[in-house]
Design a protein around this nucleic acid. Structure first.
Length: 342
RNA sequence: GCAAGGGUGGUGGAGUGGUCAAACACAUCAGACUGUAAAUCUGACGCCUUCGGGCUUCACAGGUUCAAAUCCUGUCCCUUGCA
């Protein structure tokens, strides 16, 4: 496996949150041109568990994914998002998060240290320090608390990473910049994190405002206040246009669930469309014999018409979702390829 | 032929005197989804509307009533049981 330095070129990483890009085999994923993927610490902690994955040879081996890097997200976002769901109970304090899974009723804790420990056991190449993620629209006081906690946790995560020998093993570790939409807090958080020895800086929190617009000002501040030569990861970004915009600012690492989730829900991407979007379930595609994208040679476009994909997605056929996912991922990889050529 | 039960919007199916343009589901037509709680969710779905409302509907035709999808009479269909 010949890997280029992570984040040197623009990369889009699909989310294989639970150790699988939904509806795709690793081989199908490979055919989309994907190299790097993201997995999630919290989800893999719950099932099948870090010890199990370690015992089975690590996540690369487990998924049989050797095309590129694997990045593990810390679980910070899940702590935030799962606690918003009615089914999950839990609390976050200075030390970390504790919560109860509604499925098995088991109680899990995630601290800066345990998150790193789990990620080490997973055997990913790039780790993320646990952060304190909050809602998009929050009071300044809450944003301050989130920043302070994130800084403290970053320090602890980094120390634990060193202690467990992550650096020696050639792994990379990144941190998350919080601060909501307060530019000075974003700046402060970025500057403080820059004093620590991280390999990458991630833009965290909500990346779009209430109108669905990318928070470019905040993202710019973070770029301006973090060290050059270290990768910049726009977590959860985004729509094709958002990636183009964020890449202009200097972000090179991206992941989003949109690409795969939209595929399942019937929003496909196509360079034939001005806004890159094609809602395949719409009645107008019921007898459209053209491929989803005339310039794409993915399995769906090479072999099937829009009409056929339209039908498959409408009836909820899993194979249709697979084809749509393959197509959308291929689109994103082609988009990134275009951006790297510029 | 007799007996019993039925006929409700694109479909299935609630409703059995007013709160009914009619539950709910499906289908249909749109939309959303941004470090995956998501093969999910939201809206529209008789007709018209200046979005306040207005109008026409529950097999068909009459009738009772202030008021009927709901009660009564007749007609036409359907299902089941008995001949």
């Amino acid at each position: 496996m010949t890997k280029e330095k992570f984040g040197e070129k623009i990369t889009f990483m699909p989310d294989a949150t639970r150790g699988a890009v939904r509806f795709l085999t690793s081989n199908q994923l490979k055919e989309t041109g994907t190299k790097n993927v993201v997995v999630n610490t919290l989800h893999l902690l719950i099932s099948p568990g870090p010890d199990k994955i370690e015992e089975l040879g690590g996540i690369h081996e487990f998924m049989n994914w050797h095309e590129g890097y694997m990045l593990s997200d810390s679980g910070g976002f899940q702590v935030f998002s799962l606690l918003h769901s009615k089914e999950w109970e839990g609390k976050i304090d200075r030390d970390g998060a504790t919560f109860k899974s509604p499925r098995e009723g088991k109680i899990y804790t995630l601290t800066p240290e345990s998150s790193i420990e789990i990620q080490m056991k997973l055997g990913t190449d790039i780790l993320v320090a646990l952060d304190d993620c909050r809602d998009a629209q929050i009071e300044r006081k809450e944003a301050e608390e989130s920043v302070h906690r994130t800084l403290e946790w970053a320090q602890r995560a980094l120390a634990h990473f060193e202690k467990l020998g992550g650096r020696k093993q050639g792994k990379l570790i990144s941190c998350v910049v919080q601060g909501a939409n307060y530019l000075d807090l974003r700046e402060y958080c970025a500057k403080e994190l820059s004093k620590m020895n991280f390999d990458g800086y991630n833009f965290g929190g909500y990346v779009v405002n209430d109108k669905g617009k990318l928070v470019l000002e905040e993202m710019k501040v973070v770029i301006q206040n973090t060290p050059k030569g270290k990768f910049k990861y726009a977590m959860g970004v985004g729509k094709p246009q958002d990636i183009i915009e964020a890449a202009k600012l200097g972000y090179t690492v991206f992941d989003t669930v949109l690409v795969t989730r939209n595929a399942r829900h019937g929003t496909l991407y196509s360079f034939d469309k001005e806004d890159y979007m094609l809602r395949i379930k719409n009645a107008r595609y019921s007898s459209d014999l053209a491929p989803i994208d005339s310039s794409c040679d993915c399995e769906a476009c090479k072999n099937h018409s829009r009409a056929y994909i339209h039908h498959m997605i409408r009836i909820g056929e899993a194979t249709g979702m697979t084809l749509a996912t393959i197509h959308n991922l291929m689109f994103y990889q082609r988009l990134v390829e275009k951006l790297n050529r510029v």
